[in-house]
């Protein structure tokens, strides 16, 4: 009985190992093919953002993240390791430079425009998908870089402190750019203290600016309103 069980178990292990080595063989073949493909299309990958994203999706489907490590052989082959690293630094640059103006909140499209303007002429065009990836790459830095949505407006948040639920809700209400205390009250039914605290907090961090040039004081969100030239 004991011997039988041992024999069975050993047979099982043998089968499993054979299975694993077969799989490894397949992965190697697939990897080689992918490498070859990437090598053949390296120029297109660098110059064509749509194609670049497609290749990345393909990698994802197979379960390979070319950016998983900076030393990753695929990232190197794709030339994307450097691409996203460079883009990440440029994103930090733009976010820091505009922080005093927008409190650390910038619309993705605005960020993209500013990146394009800053990048050397002739370098690869940047699309939203690239920004998302580059920001994901920044996670280990713990800088708080994150993409957040307000209505259908996608923003990059570049400050460590979180927006609380009240602030997020009010910003969601302000997607057209500005709001009054009355807007918040009729829209959300909050009491005056709660609204005031929320708005004061956002004024303090610079996410919101006050406009006293109208009969009723208005609050503006620069990230929603100011477009670069």
């Amino acid at each position: 009985m004991e011997a039988e069980r041992a024999a069975l178990s050993s047979k099982g292990t043998e089968l499993a190992q054979r299975e694993i080595s077969k799989l490894q063989e397949q992965i190697t073949v697939m990897r080689n093919n992918l490498e070859e493909f990437v090598r053949d299309h390296q120029k297109d990958i660098r110059s064509n953002p749509v194609f670049r994203v497609q290749v990345q999706r393909m990698c994802q489907v197979i379960g390979i993240d070319p950016l998983a490590s900076r030393k990753g052989y695929l990232a190197e082959l794709l030339g994307v390791g450097d691409f996203y690293c460079e883009l990440g630094i440029q994103i930090i640059d733009v976010c820091v430079a505009t922080r005093a103006l927008n409190g650390g909140l910038i619309e993705v499209e605005e960020l993209r425009r500013r990146l394009e303007k800053r990048r050397i002429r002739g370098s690869e065009p940047v699309i939203e998908e690239d920004i998302k990836r580059a920001i994901k790459q920044l996670a280990p830095l713990h800088g708080g870089y994150r993409i957040v949505s307000f209505g259908d407006r996608k923003m990059v948040k570049s400050v460590g402190r979180e927006l609380n639920l009240d602030q997020t809700t009010v910003l969601g209400l302000a997607v057209r750019g500005h709001f009054t205390l009355q807007d918040v009250q009729s829209g959300l039914g909050w009491d005056t203290d709660r609204i005031q605290t929320c708005v004061d907090d956002m004024l303090r961090t610079g996410i919101v600016w006050v406009d006293e040039g109208t009969k009723e004081t208005e609050y503006w969100v620069p990230a929603f309103s100011i477009k670069s030239m």
């Binding site: 303090r204 600016w209 208005e218 100011i226």
Partner: peptide, 11 residues
């Protein structure tokens, strides 16, 4: 053209 630019900001 950003209206609050004409109001002194409290922060």
């Amino acid at each position: 053209s950003f209206p609050p630019f004409f109001t002194r900001q409290p922060a």
